[in-house]
């Protein structure tokens, strides 16, 4: 569904991603893990067209995304849940959700938008209770749910999530990941960027490990969870386990 080949991204003259290749198949849940500054968010923003200067190839359903602006990419069926949620705080929850369907209102798709709104509110019942409230008054977990709901309102086929677990209590992380699994069951394809590698790999089919703008490891999630390198660097296994006897 999504195929990236030899992608290089630049911030001015600084290269943030140097030659990444990855693929996401239909109805897969892919985890992209890596430390701060590895280039994870850059990668997602590039796919969404928010970062205009890149080289290489990004194909979505066999069509190149080169030179496309964000609205066109949203129209193609890719939605981003951005890092730090980027909600519109003074606007009501309902207005935030409606903004997610911005392009569909233009196509006079009101009836289906209404249906999807109902579906999103069913998926996140707490948003229904707060629908008239300003988005800025929600708690962190509710805001994350709103950001996800907003992205779903565009009726994407590929959902990109940038660190949805950031700053959330463990049970909320669980809740968010459960929703992702539910979406996957309904046929959604998901590319999940996470620092919380364990949680991400537990629900993902496959995973990629990004380091300094390059993919250093890839494979089935179960393999990655068992991998020594991954364990040491990302899963926070006890330091002792690896360095026993050397100190």
């Amino acid at each position: 569904m999504l195929r990236i080949r030899n992608l290089k991204c630049y911030y001015g003259r600084i290269r943030a991603i140097s030659g990444v290749s990855l693929s996401v198949r239909e109805q897969e849940l892919i985890a992209l893990i890596g430390a701060n500054g590895a280039g994870k968010s850059t990668l997602l923003q590039t796919i969404c067209g928010l970062l205009p200067s890149w080289e290489g190839e990004i194909e979505f359903e066999k069509n190149s995304l080169h030179g496309l602006k964000p609205p066109e990419i949203v129209k193609k069926g890719i939605s981003l849940v951005p890092e730090g949620r980027l909600l519109f705080p003074p606007m009501s929850v309902l207005d935030n959700l409606k903004l997610g369907a911005y392009l569909r209102y233009r196509q006079r798709d009101h009836e289906n938008v209404g249906k999807d709104l109902e579906e999103v509110l069913e998926l996140f019942p707490v948003l229904r209770e707060r629908s008239r409230q300003a988005a800025g008054t929600l708690s962190g977990g509710e805001q994350q749910m709103l950001a996800m709901g907003r992205a779903l309102m565009a009726r994407p086929r590929l959902l990109l999530l940038d660190e949805p677990s950031m700053g959330l209590a463990p049970f909320l992380v669980r809740l968010i990941l459960d929703v992702l699994l539910k979406l996957k069951e309904r046929g959604m394809t998901v590319l999940l960027v996470e620092q919380n590698a364990r949680a991400a790999l537990q629900i993902a089919d496959r995973g990629y490990v990004l380091e300094n703008g390059q993919i250093v490891l890839e494979g089935l999630s179960s393999d990655l969870l068992a991998d020594q390198e991954v364990k040491r660097a990302y899963l926070g296994k006890d330091y002792r386990e690896f360095y026993d006897g050397r100190e």
Binding site: L50, P70, P71, V74, L80, P82, L86, F88, L99
Partner: peptide, 11 residues
């Protein structure tokens, strides 16, 4: 509020 977020919505 945020041009970037608005763009991500397809605006």
């Amino acid at each position: 509020d945020s041009e970037r977020a608005a763009a991500a919505m397809g605006v």
